[in-house]
Simulated assay, not measured.
Amino acid sequence: MTMRILHLSDTHGYHRWLRDLPAADVVVHSGDFTMHGSADEAEDFINWLCDLDYQYKLFTCGNHDFCMYRATVSGLSDTVHLLYNSGVEIDGVKFYGVPLFVPDCADGRQEQYEADIPLDTDVLVTHRPPYGILDYADQTNYGSATLLRRVHEIKPRLHLFGHIHQQYGVLKRGETIYSNGAMMNESSRTLNAPRLLEI
């Protein structure tokens, strides 16, 4: 049975600009849904996400979403999940998400969270990319070497991320399809198209 996954990322407060999104079984946002990290922005995004006409809605947080650091979100339905170093299984497919927060990067917790991603993960959702994969900007690879090693061990069917706006794209290496879904086009303040993937 095929599962259709709609990948969004790095909408930076412009989520309500999205119209006529394609049909899918699961919509996944891989972080940076706010621009300034305020609670009002996060609440508006979560309300918008909950109202979308998809059976399942998953999201993790990016470095811009700092109001969500160590936050809990109450009142979500059973079909909406914040993936905060946590996972959920949908129709036999195991999703797991790791957010990206500056304090965790500064004290080494981020690398530990990445090293602890479960081996049986089918769809990995992170904000930052693995090192060397759709992570290059300004003559620098911004991805995580720890995350790359763990992805090579896990071999998920999909790895969904964002963070590096200049590397919006998709590629396949080995058994894994990698999707950088960063939608904000910084040169024109427009949004790239959401990406529909199937597994």
Rank of each mutant, 00 (worst) to 15 (best):
K155F: 01
G181V: 05
Q167Y: 09
L191F: 11
F161E: 03
Q167D: 08
Q139A: 11
Y168K: 11
N180G: 04
H165R: 06
L147E: 02
A145W: 13
P156V: 14
G143C: 09
G162R: 03
R149G: 03
E186T: 09
A193Q: 09
Y142R: 14
L158W: 01
I154S: 01
I154V: 11
M184Y: 10
H159T: 05
S188T: 14
T190V: 14
N185I: 05
S188A: 07
D138I: 13
T190L: 14
T140W: 12
R189A: 07
Q167F: 11
G143Q: 01
D138R: 08
I177G: 00
Y178G: 01
R189K: 06
Y142F: 08
I164C: 04
H152I: 01
P156A: 06
D138Y: 08
M183G: 12
I177H: 05
L191M: 06
Y168A: 13
G169E: 02
Q166C: 06
M184F: 14
G181I: 13
R173C: 03
Q166T: 15
R150C: 13
V170N: 00
V151M: 11
L158E: 05
K155L: 10
F161T: 07
G143V: 00
N185P: 09
M184I: 01
H163Y: 05
H163N: 11
P156H: 03
D138T: 15
L147M: 09
N185G: 07
N185T: 08
N180T: 05
K172C: 05
L191V: 15
